[in-house]
Write a protein that binds this DNA or RNA. Structure first.
Lengths: 182, 182
DNA sequence: CGAGGAAGTTAACAGTGTTAACTTACAAAG
DNA sequence: CTTTGTAAGTTAACACTGTTAACTTCCTCG
């Protein structure tokens, strides 16, 4: 998995074949199939690791503040920064569609933990009576959609003339929070 | 192109090979290469068509209102609905990364026309003095990022337990507009 | 009639994910 | 000790993929 992750990160998922991974780890190509059902399975398990790292980063940075809104802002920023810092990992985890059936049911995936951190901080904001609306699930999903959109566009559409990244990130987060706040 | 588009839409881009397209149109596989440089080129040209259709839909629906904010809302909604109605086309146009060099320079692409409709309606709002901030480019890109995020998540992450789609769409658009409005 | 070019085809290359059948090595059971 | 079972790994092969080079047809123009 470590070798595969490194190669995926360096060269992109489709340009890394099972044979190349096998060569790198000094085994024959078919050996990989003793430990992973297929390439999608290998990918899915690497994604699980990525979810865990992302969750870790977000919870860590949120400890920097006690203000619920500020914690929310920090978490959203960290999500986007994580994607920009690890574009290939973000791509394979959130953008490239895993073949149907390859992904774990959501409840059993680390993805639900990552989303849980967002839901938790939104709930904090709601409990502190800072939001116009209190449907935590709707708000959390809305926020995720928005930050995922910016992250994936910045990663992928290199030919689009984006304005300064920091400006865009700040503007998106500020707009969202302003729109949600009481 | 028509046959290729239909097959891509029906089966997904990677599950349609050049050979299958050729068989469908009754030619040998290599004939396609007389008219398109490679598969990416074929894809890019289909994407250009998609951009044009999207632009057409958005400008059409915006004629339903004279209120700048309402026009903006209608346009954003139409963008998302277009994606949900044509998920494979949206995927191949906005999600799956075209190989570098395959995509046209942005200025020459129909994509710039589509984005232009968004920029135009944002400018209308700004000119009517309805927005807190008046950096049209930043606002337009922010909005695109957010609606792209929701569209692509809804299309691709089938295993995530999303709340009702309409609720989510309305909430995102309402949040964005509330956040931008004076 | 002959040349040129457009339109299309055949055969092939180098690669892909994946499976079935085979080997090898080693540990526990009789 | 030998036998048996099993874990770990390999070889060979299948059915594909995108793509290129070289070849054939056929029609038009001089």
């Amino acid at each position: 998995m470590q070798a595969a992750r490194e190669m995926f990160v360096a060269e992109g998922v489709d340009r890394v074949s099972m044979r190349k991974i096998a060569e790198k780890i000094g085994y024959s190509p078919t050996t990989i199939y003793l430990y992973f059902k297929d390439k999608n399975d290998l990918l899915a398990q690497i994604c699980e690791e990525t979810f865990a790292r992302l969750t870790h980063n977000i919870t860590a940075i949120q400890r920097l503040s006690d203000n619920p809104i500020e914690k929310l802002r920090l978490g959203l920023r960290e999500y986007i920064q994580f994607g920009l810092k690890h574009p290939e990992q973000y791509t394979m985890t959130f953008i490239v569609p895993l073949a149907v059936g390859a992904e774990l049911p959501f409840e059993q995936s680390n993805g639900s933990l990552a989303f849980g951190t967002l839901r938790a901080v939104v709930k904090e904001c709601a409990d502190a009576n800072l939001l116009k609306d209190n449907d935590i699930e709707v708000i959390s999903q809305t926020l995720w959609a928005a930050i995922h959109g910016l992250t994936s566009l910045l990663i992928q559409h290199g030919s689009f003339p984006f304005v300064d990244r920091e400006t865009l990130i700040d503007n998106l987060i500020a707009t969202l929070i302003a729109g949600l706040r009481k």
